[in-house]
């Protein structure tokens, strides 16, 4: 059972639609019991970092997520990915879950490229990751203005946008997609399929 963590902020139904389409058993839940019983967890997120962290705290889910992340695969998506890092500088300074070392900062692409970074960008693989196939030239869909700053060893794939943008980060069991796999066509569905078979 894959549990999509519901804390009142996120693209829950898009993720759920994609899992159903793939025939992956899943449940949207905000209950600790469900999170503890799950085989794997997905932390979605859309919006601003401080607000999302506040909601996660109010839902009383910070500790259980941190603990369960040691035991089973966890995937953060978009803002959910950013929340895996130590802290974010979006609207001030806010602590994240600290599951992947690093910070979240406003993007500073060279060449005056527009922010937010919206659209399909090519995944450039950076080492091996069980979520990624061997094929090159795959595009996934991004919508964001802030990006992760982390060591190269945690970056499984990045994309180029006037800077190296971490696209897929990994620290052991913990995975983070800056892009939306649930909106990235076949490539995104394949990433979710691989996550569900971990």
């Amino acid at each position: 059972m894959t549990v999509i963590i519901d804390y009142g902020a996120g693209n829950l139904f898009s993720v759920q639609n994609a899992l159903y389409h793939l025939g992956i058993e899943n449940k949207i839940s905000s209950k600790r019991d469900d999170i503890e019983a799950a085989d794997r967890l997905i932390l979605p997120g859309v919006g601003a970092f401080p607000d999302a962290m506040r909601k996660l705290k109010e839902a009383g889910l910070v500790d259980v997520i941190k603990r369960q992340a040691q035991l089973k695969p966890l995937m953060g998506i978009c803002l959910g990915m950013q929340m895996l890092l130590d802290k974010s500088y979006e609207f001030g300074e806010t602590d994240g879950l600290g599951l992947i070392p690093g910070t979240v900062e406003l993007m500073t692409p060279a060449g005056g490229l527009p922010i937010p970074h919206i659209g399909w960008n090519e995944l450039i693989k950076n080492g091996k990751c069980p979520l990624l196939s061997e094929s090159a030239g795959e595009y996934v869909y991004f919508v964001h203005s802030y990006a992760a700053h982390t060591e190269d060893k945690y970056i499984a794939a990045y994309c180029g946008y006037g800077m190296k943008v971490p696209a897929l980060v990994q620290n052991g069991n913990v995975y983070g997609c800056q892009f939306h796999p649930e909106k990235s066509g076949e490539t995104g569905l394949e990433i979710l399929r691989r996550f569900a078979s971990l």
Partner: peptide, 8 residues
């Protein structure tokens, strides 16, 4: 549409 089309 959102149940079978996985692009924005």
């Amino acid at each position: 549409t959102a149940k079978k089309v996985f692009v924005p």
